[in-house]
């Protein structure tokens, strides 16, 4: 029997690593990958709680999150390609027009 605390702890660690990647990396593709990592950490917490409660709602939610992640990647990589076409770069420092 796996303790639920350890599942949530692993989820928190993966989420922190994903946050760190999304904040510190300059490469837009790696930032998208880090966001995927954060979504996976949330999925892990959902599955852990679904196992603990014996309720399938958490697993259904994971299916929805996977769908949203797929849609997000499709649109995000479309933005990357459009940006590369205009700026010839995937460095986020080159697209800071909307930054304060």
């Amino acid at each position: 029997m796996i303790p639920i605390e350890h599942v949530i702890g692993l989820s928190a660690i993966l989420f922190t690593v994903g946050t760190l990647g999304a904040l510190t990396r300059r490469n837009l593709i790696v930032i998208l990958m880090s966001i995927e990592l954060m979504l996976n950490a949330v999925n892990l917490a959902f599955v852990g709680f679904a196992r603990a409660w014996g309720d399938l709602g958490g697993q259904i939610m994971v299916l929805m999150v996977i769908t949203v992640a797929a849609a997000e990647v499709a649109v995000g990589l479309g933005i990357v390609i459009a940006m590369f076409r205009n700026r010839d770069s995937v460095n986020i420092e080159d697209v800071s027009l909307l930054k304060w």
Binding site: I2, N43, L44, V47, R51, V62, L63
Partner: peptide, 11 residues
Amino acid sequence: GIYVVLEAHLI
């Protein structure tokens, strides 16, 4: 693999 251990086979 963790999902399999946590009884979420389809996931």
